[in-house]
């Protein structure tokens, strides 16, 4: 168990690092490009490509982190109104089915990755293999699927209802302050 917990913590830190620094990388690329154009007169031709690379990574590698924090956007009106037993059942069924969908998508997208690899497509500015970007789609989806399985498991194991392993349903837990809304 100790090892599992250590792995979990490592994955969490890694996800946080990737999310945070890919956003900062985008900021640096876009700002750098403007400043370079203003000061030296020439654009950073690689700026767009690296920014796109960062946004794909942030999006897909963020899936499991957002799932852990229960932050994926959903229409919870009916869920919130439902009695405990229904909510509990849904809290197990929804992550289970979501995980299944994630794994199916991970499968299809890895086929796509293989195709990109076979065709040897390169990016237009840096001429790097396009697969460097694409590969993060199945990885992110797969990690997301795993996290949803954990969301399912915590709801099976615990009595309380969890929206993510790190977030209890706020219908029973009023501690909302640590949720930052943007």
């Amino acid at each position: 168990m100790k090892i599992l917990r250590a792995i979990d913590k490592f994955v969490l830190k890694l996800e946080e690092f990737i999310l945070s620094y890919s956003i900062l990388l985008i900021a640096v690329m876009v700002v750098g490009n403007v400043l370079s154009r203003a000061i030296t007169g020439s654009s950073w031709t690689f700026s767009q490509e690296i920014s796109r690379f960062a946004i794909v990574i942030a999006t897909f590698m963020g899936i499991s982190y957002a799932a852990r924090k229960g932050r994926h956007i959903s229409m919870s009106a009916f869920f919130d109104m439902a009695p405990y037993k229904v909510r509990k059942a849904l809290a197990i069924f929804i992550p289970a089915f979501t995980a299944l969908v994630m794994f199916v998508l991970a499968y299809y997208s890895s086929l796509y990755v293989l195709q990109v690899h076979e065709r040897g497509t390169v990016t237009s500015s840096l001429q790097l293999p396009a697969i460097y970007i694409t590969i993060f789609i199945p990885i992110g989806l797969f990690m997301g699927g795993l996290q949803y399985l954990r969301n399912m498991w915590v709801n099976i194991k615990e009595k309380d209802i969890y929206l993510g392993t790190d977030l209890k349903d706020y219908n029973q837990n009023e501690n909302l302050e640590d949720q930052s809304f943007v």
Partner: peptide, 9 residues
């Protein structure tokens, strides 16, 4: 670039 322009994609 060959004409001395600043290409902006």
């Amino acid at each position: 670039e060959a004409y001395g322009a600043e290409p902006t994609p």
